[in-house]
Nucleic acid binder design. Structure first.
Length: 517
RNA sequence: GCCCCCAUCGUCUAGCGGCCUAGGACACCGGCCUUUCAAGCCGGCGGCACGGAUUCGAAUUCCGUUGGGGGCACCA
């Protein structure tokens, strides 16, 4: 492959479910690599497995790709010279190539029945050998073959794998070699006439003029078979880059059991796509704090896909959370306000602050599960009214330093959006605090005529309270915090009172005071 | 079972023969700051899987062992 040839890469997910993070990462790397070399990024849908592929999955995959900003140059919705881009629509092309291969003698018909193959397999197993096809039909006399085909005897087509070994180059690992005898003459066309995965990929990659195949590690042992086909076709073999797999905390391939493993779920928990994208790149690579706030373009400019590690990495939600918090803190209050409005709309917060608050109390995952699980029924997106949106933007600066994921906003500041309510223990705690009633009454009275109504004035009023009431500062602050919010953890007290506004603040403190007598 | 890939703190990693009594980040623990919770700052805990070989010298090279993972289909 010449250094100067135009680079073409493809991302080829099979639409058998949503796009999980491992695949998302493969897509990301392909995209970055393509853009880095001013090459072409192709999206191909490998849907030959009709029983497991769904259109819904295709829609989801496309949505995830777009959300990550991975726009393709050729693929579904973007016609190109090498289409179509769904394998189910490429059947004719595959069979052309099968014909060629048959004529050149690289393929031969095999009449072995599934039962016979099964017998071979069990025999091999009894011997403790790994099973490969014996090649029984390889040397059938041409007349026999003709006669049996004419008789309509069912048969598959197998590749006549040459003796020797197959070596290919992997950008991350260098030369990888396989003894050809370990792959046996594998099937390339089933007895029902449909073509097999390994053939389809190669034909696709050849016809789409793919120069670099960037995919998961789990394809390494398929690669020699594919190389044999490339060679039979007389086609140039592309460069390979097999990325290490992504594991869950149990060191198993990432799957649904590991909690949030798809982008939508993560964003429903309040993670930012930008951060997820960066995190996916930092796995298997050196971590650098300055990269936390990188954009996709920054990744294209400075992230080197070819310098990845080769050992599998474990997806660590803790570090992602930390990164997400770091990212949020690096942004402006205005930006945060906007993202918060967007996020809270999506999770239905504005329609039911109390209900969503209850869910969020069980953690972001619980909230995400509700959003994801019931999409349109349980928690439909709810657009904020003007007041709610303004309040969100006002509160944003108060919680800015504390947020790790956007969902944290709800337990922290959700009380601004609903009438005063106490958890049972909270009110008990307040009753047990000496002087709570007096504190609340004094503060309410002071706030009623406070001039000017601003944070410094509120602060000096509150700070004077302990002395005048002869109470400990801690007790005063705790009483006010609980009295205003019903919660023991809130943003800064003075700022919160100010955002609440004079009327609300006074009313809430008085309301709580009344509960104490 | 056979083939292939992988192997540095719990996790992500730096390291590509001497700069390593192995560096950073998350998590954890302690301290400071402080009206709560965080954030921030400072400090601590913690690792080269094992055994050989090469070498003046090995985390770094080679060979084994062990461990983990992936692939072995008329799945993709």
């Amino acid at each position: 492959m010449s250094e100067h040839s135009h680079i073409r890469v493809r991302f080829a997910p099979s639409p058998t479910g949503y796009l999980h993070l491992g695949s998302a990462r493969t897509g990301l790397y392909n995209y970055i690599f393509a853009r880095q070399h001013e090459g072409t990024f192709i999206l191909r849908i490998e849907d030959t497995d009709l029983s497991r592929s769904t259109d819904a999955a295709i829609v989801q995959i496309i949505a995830s790709m777009k959300e990550m900003g991975l726009h393709w140059d050729e693929g579904p919705g973007v016609p190109g010279p090498h289409g179509p881009y769904r394998q189910t629509e490429r059947d004719g092309i595959y069979h052309e190539y099968v014909e060629t291969l048959l004529e050149s003698g690289h393929l031969y018909p095999c009449f072995c029945t599934p039962g016979e193959l099964e017998a071979e397999r069990t025999a091999a197993q009894a011997d403790g050998r790994g099973w490969v096809y014996s090649g029984r039909c390889r040397a059938l006399a041409p007349e026999d073959v003709e006669r049996r085909r004419a008789a309509g005897e069912p048969h598959t087509l197998r590749v006549r794998v040459p003796a020797g070994r197959t070596v290919f180059h992997d950008i991350l690992r260098g030369e990888v070699a396989f003894e050809n005898e370990t792959m046996g003459d594998f099937i390339v066309q089933r007895s029902d006439g449909t073509v097999t995965y390994n053939l389809a990929v190669v034909v696709d990659d050849v016809t789409m003029e793919i120069t670099h195949v960037i995919r998961g590690d789990d394809h390494i042992s398929n690669t020699p078979k594919q190389v044999v086909i490339y060679e039979a076709l007389g086609a140039g073999v592309p460069e390979f880059l097999h990325m290490p797999l992504l594991f869950g905390t149990d060191k198993k391939k990432l799957s649904k059991r590991h909690g949030a493993t798809k982008l939508e779920q993560l964003t429903a928990e309040g993670f930012l796509v930008e951060v997820v994208r960066n995190y996916l790149c930092f796995l298997s690579a050196e971590f650098d704090e300055t990269m936390i706030t990188w954009s996709l373009d920054d990744l294209v400019r400075d992230f080197d896909v070819t310098r990845l590690g080769t050992s599998p990495s474990i997806f660590d939600p803790e570090k992602l959370r930390w990164m997400n918090g770091r990212y949020l803190r690096a942004m402006t209050d205005e930006w945060l306000g906007g993202r918060l409005v967007e996020y809270l709309t999506r999770v239905g917060f504005y329609g039911d602050p109390a209900g969503v608050g209850e869910l969020a109390a069980h953690g972001p995952q619980a909230l995400a599960a509700a959003v994801e699980g019931a999409e349109t029924e349980h928690l439909p997106p709810t657009v904020p009214d003007e007041e709610q949106e303004a309040l969100t933007r006002e509160v944003a600066p108060l919680v800015h330093e504390k947020l790790e994921v956007l969902a944290d906003f709800v337990p922290m500041a959700g009380w601004f959006f609903r009438p005063l309510a106490f958890a049972p223990e909270a009110l008990e705690r307040l009753r047990g605090t000496g002087g709570a009633a007096e504190t609340l009454a004094a503060a309410a009275a002071g706030l009623r005529d406070l001039e000017p109504w601003d944070v410094p004035a509120i602060e000096s009023l509150v700070r004077d309270l302990p002395a005048t009431l002869e109470l400990k500062p801690k007790a005063v602050f705790a009483a006010l915090r609980l009295g205003m919010s019903g919660q023991s953890v809130t943003p800064g007290l003075f700022e919160s009172l100010w955002v609440l506004g004079r009327d609300q603040a006074v009313a809430r403190l008085e309301q709580t005071a009344a509960l104490l007598v």
